[in-house]
Simulated assay, not measured.
Amino acid sequence: MWSADRAALRGVFYTAWRHFREHAPLDGVEALVVEALLAHPEYQDLFVDAPSFAAAMTQTTSDVNPFLHLGLHIAVAEQIATDRPPGVIAEWQRLEGLWQDGHRARHAMMECLEETLWEAQRQGVAPDDAAYIERLRAIPKGRPQKS
């Protein structure tokens, strides 16, 4: 899925949703894309047809970039599946247990991941796994989350 070509990378979202709607087999990361889209019906129309997708590719007025948001969902799902960085599964279990809401827990993790990635990009360094885990550990039970 990872590519330097932004259009090709975003095309994976379109293809995955088309495969899902056509009841075709999902390849590799497509299952994670579909899982994220099923959790976010507000984005599904962006991937229904070529004109909607083309509009989404150039949209700059939204407060939320659907590709970034869905990409963070995928990244967190992969982290949980592999416990990478080490400690992610424990934090996922803690947050999901506190809120009894896996989607809310993933969103909390996504906020921490986004902050970690932004910081690394700003400094021109690799993301700091230890800082990311510490951000996850610092999430209190009642912290309000974005959807």
Rank of each mutant, 00 (worst) to 15 (best):
S3F: 07
D5I: 07
R6T: 11
R6P: 10
A7C: 13
A7R: 07
R10S: 07
G11W: 05
T15K: 10
A16N: 01
R21E: 09
E22R: 14
E22C: 10
E22H: 12
H23L: 14
D27Y: 13
G28K: 08
V34I: 02
A36G: 01
Q44W: 11
D45P: 14
D45Q: 09
F47N: 02
V48L: 09
D49R: 03
S52K: 06
F53C: 00
F53E: 00
A54H: 09
A54E: 08
A55V: 10
A56G: 05
Q59Y: 13
T61H: 11
T61D: 15
V64H: 11
G71P: 00
L72C: 02
A75R: 14
V76Q: 02
A77Q: 13
E78W: 12
P85F: 02
A90E: 13
E96G: 12
E96V: 15
E96C: 14
L98H: 12
L98C: 14
H103L: 10
H103A: 15
H103P: 06
R104I: 06
A105I: 00
R106Y: 04
H107F: 08
A108W: 04
M109R: 01
M110A: 07
E111N: 14
E114K: 15
E115P: 11
W118Q: 15
G124H: 07
E134I: 09
P140Y: 10
K141G: 14
G142D: 14
P144Y: 04
S147V: 15
